[in-house]
């Protein structure tokens, strides 16, 4: 049976991890490759690297990072952040990334999803959607939730599937950073209206939150950052506990 996936997310700036990490056995806490290896050994099912640097050098730095990760890590990983063209995606996949995630570029020009999936296959195109509720309606937001659009989350999800997205990474900006749990109702609805895997993101604070995302939210995977980086929850204990509660995970 296909297992539910646990995905740590690493924010990257100029080739280094941004959020502080709290790993005693890590020689260089800012080195994303070292951190990635630790997560892989602990049983993470996948990794996401989100590049938030805004320098001229970003493309080269990110490509170098992808090469280093691909050389040393033996689980799949996705790269996102500022990806806007076929050439960007080609470079990252050539360097060894398994998937890329696109966000604003897809909202600005939805045809990009069609172009990418027909060139590279839909299995490697993740569309990241950030959304929050405005007067009871889930609306897509850009720039890390700062800029609202008029696009409705569920319409957009259907559209990206139709255009060839292989997976949706849904971040609820209402839940992100709260540690109050994932947006399970919205997740559940997403799973119902599209037939591609959904990765839940935003709100992880404890083990029950993951369980709820899988059971109440029907998510196929759950992503979190700080609770893993600050060792609030260890991946082995998380997966063991989920398994004991009847959720199919890889141990």
């Amino acid at each position: 049976m296909l297992t539910k996936r646990i995905i740590p997310c690493l924010d990257i700036k100029n080739g280094r991890t941004v959020k502080g990490v709290n790993f005693v056995n890590l020689r260089d806490a800012g080195n994303p490759v070292e951190l990635a290896k630790i997560y892989a050994n602990q049983g993470a099912d996948e990794l996401v690297f989100l590049d938030i640097s805004a320098t001229e050098e970003r493309r080269k730095t990110l490509q170098k990072l992808v090469l280093d990760v691909a050389a040393q890590v033996d689980i799949p990983f996705t790269v996102g952040g500022g990806i806007a063209s076929i050439a960007d995606v080609d470079r990252l996949l050539q360097a060894g990334a398994d998937k890329v995630s696109i966000n604003s570029a897809a909202v600005n020009r939805p045809e990009l999803i069609n172009e990418l999936s027909s060139k590279f296959g839909n299995q490697c195109i993740v569309v990241a959607i950030d959304a929050k509720q405005v007067e009871g309606e889930w609306l897509v937001h850009l720039v890390g939730g700062k800029v609202p659009t008029k696009i409705k989350l569920f319409d957009w999800a259907k559209e990206v599937e139709k255009r060839g997205a292989g997976e949706i990474l849904f971040t609820s900006m209402d839940n992100d950073g709260t540690k109050d749990g994932f947006a399970n109702e919205a997740l559940k609805k997403l799973s119902k209206i599209v037939n591609i895997p959904i990765i839940a993101s935003g709100g992880a604070g404890n083990i029950t939150h993951f369980k709820d995302a899988f059971i109440k939210g029907n998510a196929d995977a759950a992503l979190a950052a700080s609770i893993f980086h600050f060792k609030e929850i260890g991946i082995p204990e998380l997966k063991m506990s989920l398994k004991q509660q009847g959720i199919n995970v890889r141990i």
Partner: peptide, 13 residues
């Protein structure tokens, strides 16, 4: 078939 999410993505036995 459409009974499952396609593509299958992840770890299976």
């Amino acid at each position: 078939s459409q009974h499952v999410k396609v593509p299958q993505i992840g770890w299976n036995t």
